[in-house]
């Protein structure tokens, strides 16, 4: 097995003295999709934001333990967090497009990091949008406002924007939970395509999605009032698939599950949630 690109060891996160995550250890390798599942409020997004040091932008969070990127601790003094974030891209739950054109959105990061010639711009637009599978839908209106795209297209635009920086790792924070089934399918297909050259860390609520696209899943639970790693394993491995539908992980944190229920919104989302809830009641 190749050396892990990301090696998280004993990661402990506190927010204003409240323990959020307790000693989580995880590895992510190239060519692999690492899934992180668990009930809401368990600290999945917090974990994700610690990996590219986005967490420091929010006041009050403290991170202990190591996160090694290619064997190098990202909290070392010589690491520039902005450079780190270029190499570890991030996709959010709600697509965030900037109020400008499609082309400018794609080049938003890249154009500010280095001078781009005209042909370079075109090439980068082409390759990023193709990799995000958006090229054919927008190639004739690159200079239209990005706000006019559908929400699914906007999410792929965000993906293209991150890909324009050619990151090695892409962190995805429930990237499909705001999307309809068709748009979800497009994103899942992109995840599977991207893993050939990159490493993807995917936080998801959707157990089916975890089964479909991940190569390795880590389940976080909140049994003791804070997030802990329950297990990590191959999703299709017998033990893991049993665990994926295991109930205690979800049921043990009833308040969180209730919160799950109250935040149910979209169609696809609802299906996933109901699956979870029925799993709970079965236990």
């Amino acid at each position: 097995m190749p050396d892990p690109i990301l090696d998280i060891r004993d990661l402990t996160i506190t927010a204003r003295r409240r323990l959020i995550l307790d000693r989580v250890s995880l590895q992510a390798r190239r060519g692999q999709v690492l899934g992180i599942i668990g009930p809401s409020g368990v600290g999945k997004s917090t974990l994700l934001r610690a990996i590219n040091r986005m967490l420091e932008l929010q006041p009050g969070y403290r991170v202990k333990g190591e996160i090694r990127f290619h064997g190098h601790d990202i909290h070392d003094a010589d690491v520039d967090p902005d450079t780190l974030r270029q190499r570890i891209g991030m996709i959010f739950q709600q697509p965030v497009v900037f109020p400008t054109t499609i082309a400018k959105n794609v080049l938003f990061g890249a154009a500010r990091l280095r001078r781009l010639g005209k042909s370079e711009r075109a090439a980068l637009l082409d390759s990023s949008l193709r990799e995000a599978a958006l090229w054919h839908e927008v190639k004739d209106r690159l200079h239209d406002s990005a706000l006019r795209l559908s929400i699914g297209q906007q999410q792929r635009l965000c993906l293209a924007r991150a890909l324009a920086l050619d990151p090695e790792v892409i962190l995805m924070d429930e990237p499909t939970s705001a999307l309809d089934p068709k748009a979800t399918e497009a994103i899942e297909e992109r995840i599977l395509a991207m893993k050939a050259t990159r490493c993807v860390v995917l936080v998801t609520h959707n157990l089916d999605q975890a089964r479909r696209v991940t190569d390795w899943v880590a389940c976080l639970c909140a049994d003791n009032g804070h997030g802990e790693l329950r297990f990590s394993s191959f999703p299709r491995d017998g033990r893991a698939s049993a665990m994926l539908s295991e109930t205690s992980c979800w049921a043990s944190s009833t308040p969180s599950s209730l919160r799950l229920f109250s935040s149910v919104s979209g169609g696809r989302r609802r299906l996933g949630r109901i699956a979870i809830l029925s799993a709970c009641s079965a236990g």
């Binding site: 932008l57 974030r85 959010f92 965030v96």
Partner: peptide, 18 residues
Amino acid sequence: LPRGQLDAAAGLGLRRGH
């Protein structure tokens, strides 16, 4: 300002000045 835009820009590795 919408927090998401600032996060998204920071997530692209843009520096504070950018």
